[in-house]
Nucleic acid binder design. Structure first.
Lengths: 193, 193
DNA sequence: TTCTTTATTGACTCGTCAATCAAGAAAAAG
DNA sequence: CTTTTTCTTGATTGACGAGTCAATAAAGAA
């Protein structure tokens, strides 16, 4: 049965299964066996391709970040002024692909993991810095010196709403949350006018 | 050596040790033995008094909530108008006792736990509802119908900054974070004037 | 065909940890 | 001075899970 070039397929399946499993369990305390079973293979194969549990988690995290990054870049490309770029950045965090229960659960757990794994912390910092500089860059022309403060405030609210809605069993809270942050943005812009 | 009335002392020591251990490890993935050792007793004794690991966690969580609740009530008692009550509520979340690394780590992990333990979820809901209703109650006279939205926004920002500063190794970020939320409050009040 | 590379797994090892238990030690009660 | 109650732990059990390994199987290369 072994066809060649299975590696990328297996890796992708494992990454997806990892996020789903974290979402289903709501914790990082899941076994390699369960991940592997969900991805349709033996646990030995998971070890074979990733080397260990930690590296499976980190790969899942990198994937989540990559998807998110791509979504932001795509949305930015379609906006032509600062305000719509800001709106695009905010909305990107709440797209269907990013605001699913499993993904939120994964994010939450990655925040926790970042407290004990320096690699996880590194990745999270990359996300935070990217978000912050994207916001500041587009806020500067609109709110001047307050850009930094406002960016911090918006980023904080995004993370906070993420955290809170991770618990909601409510399905369509994504829109609400996004609108919430957009409203804050508008208020901040008004404040400087 | 056994003196009488050890139970409350042992329980308190275990609760404190649990929070410290979570803070030190940055994860809920800690052993009963380590908690017990930190509290100066054998793991068997921890089981004797609490029955099981889960219940130790929940007790630690209840304690954290209790301390926080007391702090809010105390601060509220000393404020006599809506604005200073709101400021007191906000500041309470960032006191030295609540904004210590270990406590933040504990909160974060409790959020994670709430995804799989319904008792943890229940406790977290109590905290969220209490915060929300405290905010709304004092905001209503100041911002009218917007009270609900503003409360959500402030609560979201509090949680978000908490989350973000859980990672900072920066020690004195507590003040910064509190000032941040207070500034948002001022902006919201101005918005309605 | 024979050899090598890639894919794959079941079985096994080794460690860890939650939970239990029987037994000891000290205070208080009788 | 016994007995009972409260407190305490070392040792043990039983389960579970990460990681390893030897063995199998297919596909291509020689």
């Amino acid at each position: 049965m072994p066809k060649l070039g299975m590696e990328p397929i297996r890796r992708a399946a494992l990454v997806k299964a990892t996020i789903d499993e974290i979402g289903a369990a709501g914790t990082l305390d899941i076994t390699v066996s369960r991940i592997a079973k969900r991805a349709g293979m033996s646990s030995a194969l998971a070890h074979h391709y990733f080397g260990g549990k930690d590296q499976i988690f980190l790969a899942a995290m990198r994937h989540t970040l990559t998807v998110y990054g791509a979504e932001v870049r795509g949305a930015l490309a379609m906006a032509d002024d600062n305000v719509s770029r800001l709106q695009a950045i905010i909305r990107a965090g709440f797209t269907n692909s990013n605001f699913r229960r499993e993904v939120i659960a994964a994010w939450l757990n990655f925040y926790v993991l970042a407290q004990s794994s320096s690699e996880a912390q590194r990745l999270l910092m990359i996300y935070q810095r990217r978000l912050h500089s994207n916001l500041v860059y587009n806020l500067r022309p609109l709110v001047g010196d307050r850009a930094d403060i406002v960016a911090e405030r918006i980023a904080g609210l995004i993370d906070g709403l993420y955290l809170r809605h991770g618990l909601d069993q409510n399905g369509d809270a994504g829109m609400d949350a996004a609108e919430h942050v957009l409203a804050l943005l508008q208020a901040e812009l008004r404040e400087t006018t």
